[in-house]
Design a binder for these strands. Structure first.
Length: 485
RNA sequence: GGUCCCGUAGUGCAGUCUGGAGUGCACGCCGCCCUGUCAAGGCGGAGGUCGCGAGUUCGAAUCUCGUCGGGACCGCCA
């Protein structure tokens, strides 16, 4: 027998027992971690997804186009990674948060169906579902409406799931943002379980219970059979949690064996109200009912959070339930500092044409042709139909407090090409790391990335980021400040 | 910027609350023995800055403060 390569013992077990090994140890020696069946499997799933997605796009007539990694800085959006220029010291490139600008210019350039498996970089704090650099399936189409874009993207995510699991999920349901908030209390509902929010406002229209009498919106959720496991202490904790989310309080009721309510507020409810409540929520013994009374948005958001707290399975547990959420609001409120409206998506997002007459009179009621794709309660991606008409674009800018001069200064390089004729267009992008993680049954995208970074952003294996030599700094015309104290 | 949790042998842990010698367990590693394997078995051995630094104490893995590293989350991510 010939020894072709000597090997020291591995630093940790290379089987499933290493699932419990300190992640820093795994990352510091990722080349060993990657030998494990779990990591081999995850990276192969990732490759399958990339292949399936690319094939789906090509099959649908999309053209794969690469866009630059070195691009101008753009003031809007996420914090950018910045690259100093050697040839022009004192100037900087930015790495792309997304290929957004380029892909819209590709539409002006006549590439009417573009896609790219694109690397995106954002200098924001890392999370279980966020890395500095991540991959998106990015697409843009000309002469299309919302449904055309959704159809194209949907084909690719269904193909991806089928490629990995062998089972093609059903057509992806489409609900409006308002329906999502009203029914699930979140813009990224997890459809794998029920516990929908139930409208109760009418039941308490004449109530003598003060907390309900003045509320604009009363809704409730039912956790079937959950009452025995929710003691007074845990319910107090849940109430505190609800308050931390903005609720004025939380009403809980346990359903007793005889169908009556066991609750601190039971005595404030009339017999008719109790009967109607029980009937509306189809309450059965041992059910736990949670009610919130507030303005519509707060009621929905708080109950949506509680619904997830009580009922949501681990994110990577099947089945796979995709969901389209459409008709997001064009504006998401007013910036407290500036008093100006804030965009929900980006300033180039096309308002819903039915709501155009409200753009100046009731801007917060204007819906946008903007949409999200959700999988098992995780936001996979978002997109919109873009504004191609300069007049409409300026109307939206005006609402955002941006006059023509400022628009030209900030977005001129992007908007001027539209003067040569921009087709109506729209697109979408979704995170491949998140998609792969869920399809691989992982709750953390680091498990489906060959060389990910921990929350601190440093690379435990290579030591990056590292200081550079003075020679390099000089070449770039840079000088370091003393460390901040 | 903030909240919470974690840090003991190469790896995973017990010990920490209630201070008393690094007291241990499993896997791995090294040596010898045995062997028809299949998570082999037997005997023996090496391996420790209890993350780091102060403080309290006669005495600190254990209590206090600080700090470093990691994780989950909030902010942030148009």
């Amino acid at each position: 027998m010939e020894v072709i390569s000597r090997a020291e013992p591995p630093l940790f077990p290379l089987d499933e027992r290493a699932d419990d090994v300190d992640e820093m140890v795994r990352l510091r020696h990722r080349y060993l971690d990657l030998r494990r069946p779990r990591m081999q499997r995850n990276l192969r799933i990732r490759s399958q997804v990339n292949t399936a997605v690319r094939a789906a796009m090509v099959r649908q007539g999309f053209v794969e186009v690469e866009t630059p990694m070195l691009m101008p800085t753009t003031p809007e959006g996420a914090r950018e990674f910045v690259v100093p220029s050697r040839q022009r010291p004192g100037t900087f490139y930015a790495l792309p948060q997304s290929p957004q600008l380029y892909k819209q210019l590709l539409m002006v350039g006549g590439l009417d169906r573009y896609f790219q498996i694109a690397r995106c970089l954002r200098d924001e704090d890392l999370r279980a579902d966020r890395q500095y650099e991540f991959m998106q399936l990015d697409l843009e189409m000309s002469f299309v409406d919302v449904d055309d874009v959704l159809d194209a993207a949907e084909e690719s995510v269904l193909d991806a799931a089928e490629a990995v699991t062998g089972v093609r999920p059903p057509a992806v349901p489409r609900i409006t943002w308002h329906q999502a908030m009203d029914t699930y209390g979140t813009d990224k509902p997890d459809l794998r379980f029920g516990m929908e929010l139930v409208e109760l406002t009418d039941i308490f229209a004449q109530t003598g219970f003060k907390a309900f009498a003045t509320a604009g919106c009363i809704k409730g959720i039912k956790a079937p059979g959950a009452a025995p496991e929710w003691g007074r202490n845990k319910l107090d904790g849940l109430t505190d949690h609800a308050k931390s989310l903005g609720a004025k309080g939380l009403v809980w009721l346990k359903v007793a064996a005889d169908g009556s309510f066991e609750s601190p507020v039971a005595k404030f409810l009339s017999a008719e109200e109790s009967r109607a409540l029980s009937e509306r929520l189809e309450a059965k013994p041992e059910d736990l009912l949670l009610l919130v009374a507030d303005e519509w948005a707060t009621t929905c958001e708080v109950l949506g959070d509680l619904r997830n707290t009580l009922g949501r399975p681990p994110v990577a547990e099947g089945p796979y339930r995709y969901l389209w959420v459409v008709d997001f609001p064009l504006f998401v409120g007013v910036d407290e500092a500036t008093g100006k409206l804030k965009t929900g998506h980006h300033p180039f997002c096309h308002p819903h044409t039915e709501d155009l007459d409200k753009l100046e009179t009731d801007p917060l009621a204007v819906r946008a042709w903007a949409y999200d794709l959700v999988l098992n309660g995780w936001e996979l991606g978002s997109g919109s139909i873009r504004i191609h008409d300069p007049v409409l674009q300026q109307r939206v800018f005006t609402q955002l407090g941006i006059d023509e001069e400022e628009a030209q200064a900030r977005f001129g390089f992007f908007l001027n090409p539209f003067r040569y004729g921009a087709p109506p267009h729209g697109g979408f992008a979704y995170g491949l790391d998140r998609l792969v993680a869920i399809l691989a049954g992982e709750e953390n995208i680091r498990e489906v990335i060959a060389f990910p970074k921990p929350q601190s952003g440093g690379d435990p294996m290579t030591g990056a980021p590292l200081s550079i030599e003075d020679r390099q700094l000089n070449e770039l015309g840079l000088r370091l400040l003393p460390p901040a104290t």
